Amino acid sequence: MVSQRAADVTPFMAMDVLERANERDDVIHLEVGEPDFSPPDRVIETAVDSLRAGHTNYTAARGKPALRRAIATYYDRTYGVAVDPNRVVVTPGTSPGLFLAMAALVDSGDEVVLTDPHYACYPNFVRVADGEVTTVPLDASEGFQPRVDDFAAAVGPDTRALLLNSPANPTGAVMDGETLSGLVDVAADAGATPVVDEVYHGLSYDATEHTVLEYTDDAFVLDGFSKRFAMTGWRLGWVIVPPDYVEAVNRLAQNVLICAPNFVQDAGVAALETPADRLDEVRATYRERRDLLVDAVEDWGIDLGYTPQGAYYLLADVSDLPGDALDVADLFLEAGVAVTPGVDFGDEAAEYLRFSYATDADAIETAIDRIDDLLATVGR
């Protein structure tokens, strides 16, 4: 019999839509966050060189010292924050880092507070740790920015963690420093620990990014190489661990993860040494795509209510279109455009669709034309 823990894990609808879309011909994929860029050439060359050098054996569970030092240097260079490399645990992707954080923090019945909308998988990580989910609603008219007072009202004696994300999936919202600092204070007052997913850092357009480590060492920070370095299939990430949790997380990593791939870790060092101008070009490209899609949504008569500041998503309210958001997503798929229904991201997003602009502008323009034609047939 399947365990209740496994039964409580919900499907990841974006992947369901992808599977359905792949069964059709000529579909524009705006449903998944898969960058269409290639990794930097030096990253690929380093991985090949490492393989040829025979770096295919196990490493320490927490990762190779050179990569952990490079990650610590990244925080100093980018944010002026000193991170002890011993607090860095390298993981095979960012999601395993979140698993380690939840496993280290959450006991049965403990509460984790997160935003709504939120990344679809967050509640499932809490449930797998046998924790309870409490959500704080966000509003498009406020740019999907968290309110510190709402979090303060949501925490309680059972709150163990605040799970935050900036730049955010699915909204593209970026928290300012005052908000992030205020949420750190809320967590401290509640005896809780911030767990902050920063995997979209480096992909902000109209806002300054802040790491939670600017405000506290008592936080888990999740990040990785998938998004800004277009290394999704390489499965390489990291978690910065609060000092008191280092040994516990290392033990968990030893047992659950073993280690991230050896040669991929060498490639990670090369990625972190990539010249900044490459990422400038990536950001500029995403900004152009965002503006193209934002203009199109407004032309469809949909009041977006905000402009995404980072990542490569926007969340659009389609409640004025025929049917519910699931029906609209099905209509779009019939027209050859795959998008993700907002119900994947929480109750507050149930009437929304998430559009990803992690694909080239020509494809986005084709998708816009198809939706234009579709909406003309339903009277929009």
Rank of each mutant, 00 (worst) to 15 (best):
V136K: 01
E23W: 06
S3E: 03
D49V: 08
P123D: 10
F37W: 14
D84F: 04
T46K: 08
V27E: 00
A129H: 10
D130T: 06
T73V: 03
R5D: 03
P85C: 11
T73R: 06
V126Q: 09
E19H: 01
S3V: 01
F125A: 07
L100W: 08
A14M: 00
P35A: 07
A6I: 12
S50F: 11
G97D: 09
I44A: 14
D26W: 11
P123E: 11
V112K: 00
T94L: 11
D8P: 00
V32L: 12
P35R: 02
F12G: 00
V83T: 07
E45F: 10
R20G: 02
T115C: 08
L105M: 09
P92E: 06
A129K: 13
N124C: 02
V126M: 05
R24L: 11
P39E: 01
R42D: 05
R69G: 11
D116M: 09
S108I: 09
R68N: 07
P39N: 02
Y79T: 08
T10C: 03
A120G: 11
Y58M: 13
P40K: 02
I28C: 13
H55R: 14
H29S: 06
V32P: 08
Y74G: 06
L51S: 08
V27M: 09
R69L: 10
A120E: 13
T73H: 03
G80A: 06
Y75I: 14
D76P: 00
T10A: 12
M13K: 03
A61H: 05
L98F: 10
T46Y: 06
H29C: 12
T56R: 09
Q4V: 01
Q4G: 08
E23R: 13
F37M: 12
E23M: 12
P85G: 07
R77D: 09
P40F: 01
D76Y: 02
P39L: 02
D36I: 15
T10D: 01
V43M: 10
S50Q: 02
Y119L: 14
D41S: 15
L30S: 13
A72P: 00
D41T: 14
G97N: 07
N86E: 15
A7P: 00
P123S: 12
N86R: 14
Y75D: 06
T78L: 00
P96R: 07
Y119I: 04
C121I: 13
V113M: 07
T46W: 05
L100I: 08
V136F: 01
A60Q: 10
A47P: 12
G54Q: 04
H118D: 02
V133P: 00
T56D: 08
L100T: 03
G97Q: 11
M1C: 06
A21G: 03
D26L: 13
V106K: 01
P137D: 04
V136H: 01
R68W: 04
Y79Q: 04
Q4R: 08
P65H: 11
V32E: 11
D130G: 00
S3H: 03
V133H: 05
G63D: 02
A60Y: 08
G131H: 13
E45A: 14
G109W: 07
D25F: 08
V89L: 11
P11S: 04
E132I: 14
M102E: 04
A103T: 15
P137F: 12
D84K: 06
S95D: 15
V2F: 10
